[in-house]
C-alpha cells in the first residue's frame, strides 16, 4: 500500500497543537510507517511554493490548526483545501475560533491601538502601525491583511472532520489518526472523540441538587474535591462541553473551560453554558439574582472561551 501523504499546518494559534501532535509519543513511529509528512512548517523545511506545486487532492489528510485572522491564513486554508482529500480542523481555534476568537470582542483598530500604542512596554513615538504595503529604498514590503473578525476554519472552507481540544488530548488525536490509518473514517462532519456526551459524563465528582448563592473565581475558594465544581459556585463548563478528554481539569479541581466545544445537537455552546449556570442560581428574588449574577466576571470570556466566532452572534458590536 502506498504511504499516506500527511500535511500539518498552523494558522492563528499558539503552537500548543503542534506539541499535542507530538504527545502521541511512540505512536508517532507507527504513524511514520504508514504516512509521509509532506508539509509541516514547525518541523519540515517546505515552502508555500512547494504546496502550490502539488496537484489537487494529492495530500491525503491535512490537520489544520488555528483560526483564520489574516488574509495569509485564509489563502493557506483555501490552498490546503484544494490540495487535500480530507481536511481536518485540529484543535479549538480551527474548530470554534479558540482563544484568538476572543479578539472578536474588538476590531482591528482597537487591537492595533492596544498592541502597538497603549501597552506599557511599547515605545512607538512615531505611532507606526502595521501596513499591508510599505515602500522602502529596496522596494515594496508587504504584510498580510489583519481582519476585523476572526473566523473558524469551517466558516472559511469546507471541512471534513473536527479533532477538538485546546489542545486535543493525545487519546483524541490518536483516535482520529488510527481511524485514518485503518481507513475507517466516520461520516463526514463528525467531531471525533471517545464520548459524544458531555464532560460531566467522564467526571467522577458527585452531583446532588445543591444550588448556588454565590459564584467564585478559581483563586477564591478551595473546592471540596468530591463534589461537582459547578454546585460549589465555580463556573464549570462540563455540562455544555463534549466529552472524550476524560475530564482532566475537574479531576484536578479546576473547572472545565469548554475546550472540546459544544455537545452534539447544540449550535451555540455559550448559550448552553449560560443556561446551565442560570439554572443553578438559588433564588427567586430579582435583587438577589442580580447580585449573584454581578459576581460573574466576564460572561462572554467564560461562556464562549473557545467559541465566540462560531456562536450565533460571532462577534461584539463596536460602537
Amino acid at each position: 500500500m502506498a504511504k499516506l501523504k500527511l500535511a500539518l499546518y498552523w494558522a492563528s494559534s499558539c503552537g500548543g497543537c503542534e506539541i499535542a501532535q507530538l504527545q502521541i509519543g511512540d505512536k508517532i513511529l507507527k504513524l511514520a510507517e504508514v504516512a509521509d509528512i509532506v508539509f509541516w512548517p514547525v518541523a519540515i523545511d517546505a515552502k508555500y511554493k512547494d504546496v502550490e506545486a502539488m496537484p489537487e487532492k494529492s495530500i491525503d489528510v491535512c490537520l489544520f490548526n488555528g483560526a483564520i485572522r489574516t488574509s495569509e491564513q485564509e489563502h493557506m486554508a483555501k490552498m490546503l483545501r484544494e490540495k487535500s482529500k480530507v481536511l481536518i480542523a485540529y484543535g479549538a481555534c480551527a474548530y470554534g475560533g479558540g482563544i484568538p476568537g476572543l479578539g472578536n470582542m474588538f476590531n482591528r483598530e482597537l487591537i492595533f491601538e492596544r498592541a502597538y500604542l497603549e501597552t506599557p512596554s511599547t515605545d512607538n513615538k512615531e505611532k507606526v502601525l502595521p501596513q499591508t504595503k510599505c515602500k522602502v529604498p529596496e522596494g515594496e514590503l508587504t504584510l498580510p491583511e489583519f481582519y476585523d473578525t476572526v473566523k473558524t476554519l469551517g466558516q472559511t472552507v469546507d471541512i471534513d472532520y473536527v479533532i477538538p481540544g485546546c489542545p486535543p488530548e493525545a487519546r483524541t488525536t490518536w483516535l482520529a489518526l488510527e481511524a485514518l490509518i485503518e481507513g475507517k473514517l466516520p461520516p463526514k462532519g463528525t467531531v471525533i472523540t471517545h464520548n459524544a456526551k458531555a464532560v460531566c459524563d467522564d467526571c467522577p465528582k458527585k452531583r446532588d441538587v445543591k444550588k448556588v448563592k454565590k459564584f467564585y473565581r478559581t483563586f477564591e475558594i478551595m473546592p471540596d474535591p468530591e463534589i461537582c465544581l459547578l454546585e460549589q459556585g465555580l463556573l464549570c463548563a462540563g455540562i455544555a462541553t463534549r466529552g472524550g478528554c476524560e475530564a482532566p481539569c475537574p479531576q484536578a479541581n479546576m473547572p472545565c473551560t469548554g475546550c472540546y466545544g459544544p455537545v452534539d445537537g447544540v449550535i451555540d455552546q455559550g448559550a448552553h453554558f449560560l443556561s446551565a449556570v442560570a439554572s443553578v442560581i438559588d433564588s427567586n428574588d430579582p435583587d438577589e439574582i442580580q447580585r449573584i449574577i454581578d459576581g460573574i466576571y466576564d460572561p462572554v470570556g467564560t461562556f464562549y472561551r473557545y467559541s465566540l466566532p462560531d456562536s450565533l452572534l460571532r462577534r461584539a458590536k463596536i460602537k
Binding site: S279, S283, Q290, I296, V300, F303, L313, A316
Partner: peptide
C-alpha cells in the same frame, strides 16, 4: 421561574457584546 434567572444573565452578556 428559570427565565427570571436566565434573562438577567443573558442581558449582562449581551451588554458586553455591545447589543442594545
Amino acid at each position: 421561574m428559570k427565565e427570571a434567572r436566565r434573562i438577567p444573565l443573558l442581558k449582562k452578556m449581551l451588554g458586553q457584546l455591545g447589543i442594545e
